[in-house]
Nucleic acid binder design. Sequence first.
DNA 1: GCATTGCAAAGTGCATACAGATTGATCGAA
DNA 2: TTCGATCAATCTGTATGCACTTTGCAATGC
Lengths: 216, 216
Amino acid sequence: MIRTGTTVEQMVRAIADMIVTGEMLPGAKLDEVSLAVRFDVSRTPVREALRELGAMGLIAREPNRSAVVTNVTEAYLHSMFEAMAELEAICARLSAERMTVDERRALELEHRESVRLVHAGAEEEYSAHNTEFHTRLYRGAHNDHVFEMVTQTRARLAPFRRAQFRLPGRLAKSYEEHGRIVTAIMRADAAAAGQAAYSHVEIVSDASAVFATPGE
Amino acid sequence: MIRTGTTVEQMVRAIADMIVTGEMLPGAKLDEVSLAVRFDVSRTPVREALRELGAMGLIAREPNRSAVVTNVTEAYLHSMFEAMAELEAICARLSAERMTVDERRALELEHRESVRLVHAGAEEEYSAHNTEFHTRLYRGAHNDHVFEMVTQTRARLAPFRRAQFRLPGRLAKSYEEHGRIVTAIMRADAAAAGQAAYSHVEIVSDASAVFATPGE
DNA sequence: GCATTGCAAAGTGCATACAGATTGATCGAA
DNA sequence: TTCGATCAATCTGTATGCACTTTGCAATGC
């Protein structure tokens, strides 16, 4: 547990982590008193944390009812993946136009070095690299609001694509698609970068469709 | 004041309205006890409302410090307008592809009827029409997550473009730009619709730049 | 046997109270 | 006069307690 920030912020991070890592599955109830006991605080900060998580879209709240981990419908999940593709495309386009020389170099290096993870079949490590790669793309767009939106959307999608790199051949395919994005960005070809990023997410979406819960 | 929902939700709406309508200017402090007195509740629901408003981006909160109405820097404001343009473009593109016949008809009708507001120079009324027009565009995209993002971004930008239709000739220009978007959507020309929507926001951005607070 | 009503247990919504942090002012010393 | 320190006032952060809402079960009536 990170020790920075207020009690509430720590709890928000901790609970968000539990949801994002799959420790708490969609539909799970979040009882205020249980959480208060678990974190050794009173219900007041728990309630504030839940309100924030609700605003983030990670949990659903109704009056006089326990909060539950968001159980998105297939339709909404699809809309999030589509939005994610659009947002990634925006980031890639803007990155192609705006990344500094250093940023471009760092992105390419990050990508090049990940090839050994692909060959080793190191799913966990590649997943970490993948996060880093995409974060560089988001930052490279040099647009703070877009960064916020894409980061939030990514967090909400996280529970639904945990196992994506377990699928056979997905690592190599991901690497190849990253390569296409990197090449376009190095060439400052915004249109190509955008298209490459868009189709990259599209494919991840298909691979993750399995995890969607049947519509409500 | 709307009487639906819990106390906290009512407060969130009420305070958000005050900020968006400009009753509370960026930089204004939101003292918990004052708000509690004002709404005749205790500090507990006030704090929860503030936390939610913070998550919405309308106010900024720091530990042990009063919440203040978000005072965005010029740079961040610019990033929001740029993001808004991208989001509107996405909505316009998707609307061109996905709007039902009824939706297209309704959009065109809405647009056609607004011409009299332009001739009458009815700023207030045109502003209401403008909101309706754009909301139709957002819904027409048939993507719930994009709808959420664009709605939120619009709410955060609201305080900075209150007076946009006061500028001379802005009404007619807005009408003309709407027309270009409508035409493209009726033709199902996604690319043209996207471009028209993008440049529409760009121009609104320029017109509002005056209201940005000098960077922090 | 089934439905309906009443009750109790559990949980959320809000108020109050206290503890800790911050800010500004005042007093003293250089 | 000015700088610094200390203290008081004010405000936020958290705990606790009470009231209301929901829900499941059981008992009673049909």
